[in-house]
Design a protein around this nucleic acid. Structure first.
Length: 500
DNA sequence: AGCCTTTGACCAGCG
DNA sequence: TCGCTGGTCAAAGGC
């Protein structure tokens, strides 16, 4: 498989949709769906279009899971909704917004659905029509003019990298790219602390959506391990959201007491989001769907690509650990950050622990060829502020892991939190860049977060800002993020994918 | 040449 | 003090 194809496959949407497909194993249209699937690098948007047109035009996205998977799931969804309803009308609004948005998309999809030929369908997938050129009218002397007009000041490269043209990984979340969080199962919001809220915000802001500079397109990894990132980010972002979510984030995360080390077993949703950031050590975890629409043994993602450079300096088989543990150091001079990654024998990342705070901004993208361009952009824009930890925000860390109070750690049955270091419960984790980045990506539409956490740095000079200064004062912190292979995922009562 | 991974050895903490 | 364990070092080799 070509590199490009692999990259496309690595996009979280592939994972999400792959899971959906798997979930829909009982449906009759799977074959048709997979047929579309086989088209080269379909964009998330088109994938979803096909998805809806062929499979789920009968109801809201959230019903997909309940109708195609299990009644139990629906029950879980209902429960979840109930819990949110109790918090106010916000949930209702979200639901409405979601439904309306879906409706809009359906409308657009109906158009594409009428397309008959492959070209039309591909055009629909690409988000723009394929112009038919009448070659008979083209003279050899006439200048060949592209049907696409590129505005002055916009390079073709930029244009190509725009969300519309980007089939997947590079595209940032937007209605155009189909990467909007709302596309995820509504309940997935609970998967990651940060994702949820962001998705909600996005829904509210749909009408006001506007493209923003690519900051952190981390689809993935949005969690991953990068899931942990989300958790961390949540800590920061929660500064403004604490009150609102505090009611939702119950004591269920009793483990959340905190620490500088947080172990989170992310739900699949997070995991999927994290995907696109294969870290050097995690690249192998890129997952691919096989012919059956199932994921190969290749792991899903790791949390990992956080934009920093890591050097592996050791590996050990931990005594009681099921999997070998790898030790990584940040390659930046004098940067004390380390991380431990545990992988299953199949190569799946089962746990990631970040320790310490980066004492430097994210490395320049150009120095990290292994990282997709979009990530570079994000990373670059990200700056140090996201990597910094904010004492006092850390309490949100674990909340994020179980926003709704539901811990979906099927593996152990509980959210695990490891504590190490001297951090107090209120000064837990520093916000590791990685994790927070993912969160940032998802929450790009969250103005509050931006303002509060600098997710989209207002001072994007790559220098050190106040946050950075604070971050450097933070005690060493650790994050433990656990991920599971998608093939081992199940749909929980909450409508979220969990791994077992 | 530089950077990374691998891997056995070494070190430190703990009971 | 000894053994166990987790973490780290550093040489060797690969890319």
């Amino acid at each position: 498989m070509s590199l490009s194809r692999r990259k496309a496959s690595s996009y979280p949407w592939d994972l999400i949709l792959g899971k959906i497909i798997t979930c829909m194993a009982g449906t009759n249209n799977r074959g048709a769906l997979m047929e579309d699937w086989m088209l080269p690098s379909p964009s998330p948007r088109t994938q979803m279009s096909s998805f809806w047109n062929e499979e789920f035009s009968c109801g809201p996205f959230s019903n997909i899971f309940s109708e195609n998977c299990s009644n139990k799931t629906q029950d879980g969804i209902d429960k979840t909704k109930s819990s949110f309803d109790s918090s106010g009308e916000e949930t209702v609004q979200d639901t409405k917004a979601s439904v309306q948005f879906e409706s809009n998309l359906f409308d657009s999809n109906e158009k594409s659905a009428s397309y008959g030929g492959l070209a039309e369908r591909m055009a629909a997938r690409a988000g723009f029509g394929i112009l038919k050129i009448d070659t008979s009218r083209v003279s050899s002397s006439a200048p060949i003019r592209s049907p696409v007009t590129i505005p002055p000041g916009v390079s073709p490269r930029e244009l190509l990298e725009s969300p519309v043209f980007l089939p997947n990984a590079i595209a940032q979340p937007s209605p155009t790219t189909g990467k909007l969080p709302f596309l995820m199962p509504h309940n997935c919001k609970y998967v990651t602390p940060s994702v949820p809220k962001k998705a909600e915000d996005r829904l509210h802001d749909d009408s006001a959506f506007s493209f923003q500079p690519i900051l952190r397109s981390k689809p993935p990894t949005f969690l991953t391990a990068d899931k942990g990132a989300n958790v961390v980010h949540q800590n920061q972002s929660l500064a403004n959201d604490n009150q609102r979510e505090s009611s939702l984030q119950s004591n269920s995360t009793g483990t959340k007491d905190i620490t500088d080390t947080n172990l989170v077993k992310p739900k699949t949703c997070d995991s999927m989001l994290d995907n696109d950031h294969p870290s050097p050590a995690d690249e192998q975890e890129e997952s691919e769907e096989n012919e059956n629409g199932e994921y190969s043994s290749a792991p899903v993602t790791a949390p990992a690509e956080d934009g920093y450079n890591w050097r592996k300096y050791g590996q050990k088989q931990v005594k009681n650990g099921e999997h070998p543990r790898s030790y990584y150091k940040c390659t930046h001079p004098n940067c004390p950050v380390k991380k431990k990654v545990e992988r299953s024998h199949e190569g799946h990342v089962t746990e990631i622990v970040y320790k310490g705070s980066h004492s430097h901004p994210l490395p320049h993208p150009n120095r990290r060829p292994s990282v997709p361009f979009s990530q570079f952009s994000d990373l670059q824009a990200d700056g140090p502020e996201n990597s910094g930890s904010k004492p006092g925000h850390s309490t949100a860390t674990l909340r994020g892991s179980a926003p709704n109070g539901h811990v979906h750690d099927v593996h152990n049955g509980v959210l695990e939190t490891k504590q190490s270091g001297s951090l107090t419960t209120t000064e837990t984790a520093d916000t590791s860049v990685m994790e927070s980045r993912e969160a940032v990506d998802v929450s790009s539409g969250d103005k509050d977060e931006k303002a509060t956490h600098g997710a989209i740095p207002s001072t994007f000079d790559g220098g050190e800002d106040e946050t950075e200064s604070k971050r450097r004062l933070d005690p060493i912190s650790k994050y433990i993020i656990q991920a599971y292979h998608p093939s081992q995922s199940i749909l929980t009562e909450d409508g979220c994918f969990c791994r077992y």
